[in-house]
């Protein structure tokens, strides 16, 4: 520790009223008074009236006086001793920043919090939030989505009304897993743009396209798809994905967005894909359970997945046009799902 009376640093003095920059020497006397002395500066200031800026790497430290004047003190051998003699001690955060052990600790803590939060915290939070969204809001949300889809992508179904009613009625006869009824409504739409597909809205509205119905050999296959969609409804996947993707997007933009919003959007898509894969697997499991407990084979759902996959690898494409079809056909997620269902 340097004797306070001998502590001395060089810096520049600014009076806070003009931009004049004055070279000064700062000394601290035995009574705790700082003397700022330069060619046209001569100021005495008790050290209690001086606040010291925190160290920020190679930036100068500022000794700030109450009237707005300050001294800029660049890095120099005696600076730390002088600042200590002023009675200033750095905050815990500053000390953490200057020690590599704390820096490494922060990094590890951060990784753990993020990994646990992403893997367990966010799905849990999404489930809790999804449970608490009032049914009226869910209904409005779903009606809006359906109206939008009807305008943009769907035409009225061309299937005979009897056929549609029969499928819906057969599905109503099935017992859901655990006997827990899930309110739902099955609708049919034609959609050349979307092709063979089925989707579930959070309110329980399940939409099946005519193209999907045409793909099936018997009604049991349609029922298999419906059990999968009912799984999405029961587990509130739509609402959960909404929460999950919003949080992932927000956190990533905050973390990386400073550098590039493009850099943030790519990992966001990848990280969100995990949640939708998990939801698909959960809906498959629900569907398989429901099929089994009603004496139907889960393989029905597996074969439907295969057919759906094949139908989306553009029909009638020539053999030499492989680029896109191959990608879809070898899409690993779907293969895994099909195998998992076959094993059930």
């Amino acid at each position: 520790m340097t004797d306070p009376t001998s502590a001395r640093v060089a810096g520049h003095y600014f009076d806070g009223r003009t931009s004049a920059r004055r070279a000064v020497a700062l000394t601290l006397d035995a009574f705790g008074v700082v003397h700022v002395q330069g060619s046209d500066v001569d100021r005495f200031e008790p050290m209690a009236g001086i606040s010291v800026s925190e160290p920020l790497g190679g930036a100068p430290r500022l000794l700030m006086f109450r009237d707005g004047a300050y001294c800029e003190v660049p890095a120099q051998p005696d600076r730390d001793a002088f600042v200590a003699a002023l009675g200033h001690s750095d905050s815990h955060v500053v000390r953490a920043q200057s020690r590599w052990s704390w820096v490494a600790g922060s990094a590890i803590l951060l990784l753990v919090v993020i990994a646990v939060g992403y893997r367990f915290g966010l799905p849990w939070l999404a489930e809790k939030i999804a449970e608490r969204i009032p049914a009226s809001i869910v209904a409005t949300l779903s009606d809006q989505t359906l109206a939008l889809l009807d305008r943009a992508a769907f035409d009225p179904s061309k299937l005979p009304e009897g056929r549609r009613n029969r499928i819906a009625e057969q599905f109503r006869q099935l017992t859901p897993p655990g006997g827990v009824p899930v309110p739902h409504e099955v609708l049919f739409r034609a959609s050349p743009e979307i092709g063979a597909n089925a989707l579930a809205l959070p309110s329980g509205t399940i939409i099946v396209t005519d193209e999907l119905v045409k793909l099936t050999e018997n009604d049991a296959e349609i029922l298999a798809v419906l059990t999968h969609e009912l799984g999405h409804v029961h587990e509130r996947h739509g609402l959960r994905l909404l929460v999950e993707s919003s949080v992932v997007g927000f956190v990533l933009t905050w973390y990386i967005g400073d550098v590039s919003s493009l850099a943030a959007s790519v990992p966001a898509a990848l990280l969100q894909a995990r949640f939708s894969r998990e939801h698909e697997a959960a809906a498959d499991a629900y569907g398989a359970n429901m099929l089994k407990s009603n004496g139907l084979s889960p393989a029905l759902l597996a074969s439907m997945l295969e057919k759906l996959e094949a139908s989306h690898g553009s029909p009638g494409a020539a053999a030499d046009d492989k680029s896109i079809n191959d990608y879809l056909a070898s899409h690993p997620a779907t293969r895994e799902r099909i195998e998992a269902l076959r094993k059930r």
Binding site: G58, A59, Q97, W102, S106, A107
Partner: peptide, 21 residues
């Protein structure tokens, strides 16, 4: 500009950890 990446990294990571916590 007199800053360095190594210096700022330490400030940044401590800032982020405290923000998350």
């Amino acid at each position: 500009f007199t800053g360095s990446g190594g210096e700022y990294f330490r400030i940044w990571i401590v800032n982020i950890a405290l923000t998350v916590v």
